[in-house]
């Protein structure tokens, strides 16, 4: 008995440092943000006071919040399906053609290990007006010169493409690992039965990849609301908020305008949004997923 009690205490003691870090730096700030969102922002001569839902009402009336929200939804819609589809396509291709060639995997993985700031700088060069790579190619074919990042019409597309490029390689690694866990004899059995490559993918490979797809999907949703590094480098939310994403807006409100309470309210909305998405995905997809 006492032996077991000691073991339990040891167990908790071992967990304690990590638990403490999580509580202090993750759980408590989340709770604190939630509480702060019901108070006014403290100023030099005016301490914070309880204002109820004022911050949330302000949000509903805030056109920039809605702009950031819609930008973010378009950004998510642009990055998630495309990056997953690309990742799947590349993984299947690599798996078929060049099984086990590590350098190919490495090549695809490179965008992931690069810091987003570095990635953004590379793409900044591609998108630069007049002498950027994209401009030169377009110019070579006699196209019209475009300021990709400076135009309201194209800026959001430009930052979306960067995100896709960064994510697809990362997700491909997961797909590739899952594909290599599928015994080759399944493919051979399907080939003997007369299944085409497409049928084999649709009826065998894709269903067996469902756990990976679920994992990748949730990650990509979270990333779509979390990835803002390249916004700082490439557009700073401009032109005229055309590329302001939710998290970037929270940063601006909190650390440029120093309206911390309003930023806390925005944060709560973002967290709630992510929680809902995660629950829906797990609830809906989990049931249709075959785990081996």
């Amino acid at each position: 008995m006492t032996h077991r009690a000691t073991a339990t205490i040891h167990g908790w003691l071992l967990l304690l440092p990590a638990m403490a870090c999580l509580a202090v730096f993750t759980h408590w700030p989340a709770v604190a943000s939630f509480i702060d969102s019901f108070y006014s922002t403290p100023r030099a001569r005016r301490p914070a006071r309880f204002v109820g839902l004022d911050n949330y009402q302000q949000m509903i009336a805030d056109p920039i919040f809605w702009k950031a929200m819609s930008n973010n939804l378009w950004f998510a819609l642009g990055t998630i399906p495309t990056s997953i589809a690309l990742a799947l396509l590349m993984a299947v291709w690599v798996n078929d053609k060049i099984v086990g060639r590590t350098w190919v995997r490495m090549a695809y993985f490179t965008p992931t290990i690069l810091p987003m700031i570095a990635v953004a700088n590379i793409w900044l060069f591609f998108f630069t007006p007049q002498y950027g790579l994209l401009e030169q190619i377009v110019g070579f074919f006699g196209g019209r010169s475009t300021n990709w990042l400076g135009s309201q019409d194209t800026a959001l597309y430009a930052v979306t493409i960067v995100a896709i490029w960064k994510e697809a390689g990362f997700f491909m690694i997961f797909y590739l690992a899952a594909l290599q866990a599928i015994p080759p004899s399944l493919g051979e059995a399907a080939a003997i039965e007369g299944a085409s490559r497409w049928t084999y993918f649709r009826r065998i490979q894709f269903p067996l990849l469902m756990p990976t797809t679920l994992f990748v999907l949730i990650n990509s949703v979270i990333n779509a609301f979390r990835m803002v590094d390249h916004i700082f480098v490439m557009t700073r939310g401009g032109p005229d908020n055309a590329t302001t994403l939710l998290l970037f807006y929270i940063y601006q409100v909190g650390f440029s305008f120093w309206d911390t309470s309003y930023a806390a309210a925005l944060t709560c909305i973002l967290l709630a949004l992510l929680a809902i998405v995660a629950f829906v995905q797990y609830g809906w997809l989990e049931r249709r997923t075959h785990y081996r």
Binding site: S185, L186, A189, A191, I192, E193, A195, P207, L208
Partner: peptide
């Protein structure tokens, strides 16, 4: 698929996400 053969693999090569019926009827469906 054009040779008129069927094959039983050493590890059986059954499709793990399909039921027994679906496994057996896979080729017929294809």
């Amino acid at each position: 698929s054009g040779r008129g053969i069927a094959m039983v693999f050493q590890n059986y090569a059954l499709f793990p996400h399909l039921s027994v019926a679906e496994n057996i009827a896979f080729g017929l469906k294809v």
